[in-house]
Design a binder for these strands. Structure first.
Lengths: 352, 352
DNA sequence: TGAGCTAATGTAAGCGTTTTCAGAATTTCA
DNA sequence: TGAAATTCTGAAAACGCTTACATTAGCTCA
């Protein structure tokens, strides 16, 4: 057997489902055919009330649960939708995903979640795993991934929705918000406050269109405001408080010191705020700091974080509905753009 | 590349999907039998090198992915483990779950996640859905659920692990920490600081053994410290900042006003801190507040939250390993108790 | 009454895999 | 060299379910 994966090579010893009753068991016990039992379960209207009750009783008594494999095989339908997110350990995805799942559950559709650890190859593997499980549709985060991934999906004709971003000019089905425009708005607000020395701490932009679009958005605003977008000092940083602190520390070394720090997400911004304060700087008097996402942290930190509010729950719901519509055959597959909103708290002010 | 274009995307409900290549397609193209292709994929050593390479080439060329349903049906095995958590939108579960999934992925096992919205019935439904998908094992949060759920799992002989709690005297397989003892430690620490007027804001204890064990732990410590555990003022509250604020406001009305507020989790504690501050109280000088979990928020709030640190990632990993061990038949199914630790920050001090 | 409906149920053919068993090809060794 | 042992490979039978089609039962109405 495979030496590479010794753990999987060893087959489970216990004999599974030895006691799992089958459709056939139910049918025999009820004295009807398997077809009838199947109908009771899938399309009860086709069956007389008395038979239905009889069968349901037996189902209950035996604790019967349909075997998904058999069902998927026979019907080529799974009532299942998949989602691949970069990581579960991130408040941003969690909220939207929870809403996505709730909307799906209300429609009787099961959600399977997998995570890619921000790795294109891993994402592809996970997509394959989901597809092989017969998912009827797929939700993905953002648009940046290898062409092969899309080719695979198209070849299998799996409908998919891209979320957490919206790009007006692309033909893919986005259900999300315009990261570039939103970041641009935020930067414009900063510029309007009178800041001229602006720096940015961005998320990692490789394979991450949300992060890179936010960078572009900030550059757009700078250019527009008569500052050079190309010369914007940028540091890319992993999504964690400590990395936000580190990046902020580096930015504070610059001469002249930036009077405003635009951060690619709230976690980085909060990290930056805590570092600035620990260095004896007052926020926003000595340095303004802005975020993006509006997670819980933004409201709790002192000073309150001025940031871009993203309607995560609404986005999750809308993505679910878009996918459900396609499955019902009642969608033209057009996407949906959601509005973001700048939340003014206390971390942004005019430079003194 | 219209993702949701109806003509290509919608699989008419009764028409078989003509796009996915099957084992048979691969076999025919390679000029071998389906048995050989299956062997190439599952047990390559059984096949001559030349045949193997030929087949693998075709697999690649066709973009073949085995159909999970067929496989599950034929082999009665799925290399899949399920998890049902109360909600995805909660930092506490997210971190442990991510670690759980990573450990599983390293072993070539897929994780299916479902969420129950803290509802016993819904949890049972989700478990059924997972079981019908042929999961080989299951992870659940806590121990409090109807007997029927356990009966069902036992009848199906699905091995399961209970996490986020550990109860020394029960013979179920727990991989977690002793909530009761940890809460007791925290309360003892508070008492040792000299507090006599202590109140508690707990999570909702119904169907939630973590929350109720924490309450019991605090009561234990009070009794032990010569204060009456039975008389502990308690408010139960949903997991959210605002509900924490509301509960704290109510507690501040009490005469005499508590000098210490023990909270069942960090979110409630942070909510309580922000409310206390907004009422002009100083924390910890006027009122001490403690939490439980040690999420990111605890480190960022001012003052830093004194709380119980839970090794979420280690717990997720350990739970995964425990389950994997059972699947390989090399485990007696005994659990594992992890240590928690009190993290002293600044929100706890002696009463003035 | 019975022809002609409709409604309810049954029969049986797959769906895509794995796996047992048997046969073919190759190697070994007396 | 030929029989026996050893590899490979293929045919075909499951696995649990859905569903097209066939059949039967229960009506209506002339």
């Amino acid at each position: 057997m495979l030496a590479l994966h010794p753990t999987t090579a060893v087959r489970p010893l216990h004999v599974k489902n030895r006691f799992a009753p089958t459709l056939h068991d139910v049918a025999r016990r009820a004295g009807v055919s398997t077809a009838t039992v199947s109908r009771v379960l899938n399309d009860p209207a086709l069956v007389t009330e008395s038979t239905r009750e009889l069968v349901l009783g037996i189902v209950e008594e035996l604790g019967y649960t349909p075997h998904f494999g058999g069902r998927a095989l026979a019907s080529n339908r799974s009532n299942t939708i998949g989602a691949v997110i970069p990581t579960m350990d991130n408040a941003i995805f969690a909220r939207g995903l929870q809403a996505f799942q709730e909307t799906l559950a209300d429609a009787g559709v099961t959600l399977l979640v997998a995570s890619s650890s921000y790795d294109d190859k891993r994402e592809f593997e996970q997509i394959r795993a989901l597809v092989s499980r017969g998912i009827d549709g797929l939700m993905l985060i953002g648009a940046a991934r290898p062409k092969e991934t899309y080719t695979f999906l198209d070849r299998r004709s799996i409908p998919y929705v891209l979320t957490w971003n919206y790009r007006p000019d692309e033909k893919v089905c986005f259900v999300g918000f315009n990261n570039r425009a939103a970041a641009s708005d935020m930067a414009r607000t900063v510029i309007e406050r009178g800041h001229r020395h602006i720096a940015m701490i961005a998320g990692i932009t490789a394979s991450n269109d949300r992060a890179s679009d936010r960078v572009e958005g900030v550059r757009d605003a700078l250019d527009e405001g008569g500052l050079s977008g190309r010369d914007l000092p940028i540091l890319e940083s992993v999504y964690s408080l400590n990395d936000g602190r580190r990046a902020c520390a580096a930015m504070l070394e610059r001469k002249p010191r930036p009077t405003a720090l635009i951060c690619g997400n709230d976690v980085l911004a909060v990290g930056a705020i805590t570092l600035a304060k620990s260095r004896g700087l007052r926020v926003p008097e000595d340095i303004s700091i802005t975020g993006f996402d509006d997670i819980e942290l933004a409201e709790v930190i002192e000073p309150g974080l001025t940031t871009v509010h993203v309607p995560h729950r609404r986005m999750g719901e809308a993505a679910a509905r878009a996918l459900l519509a396609v499955l019902e055959g009642e969608s033209n597959g057009r996407g949906l753009e959601l509005e973001t909103q700048i939340v003014m708290r206390d971390s942004l002010a005019s430079p003194s």
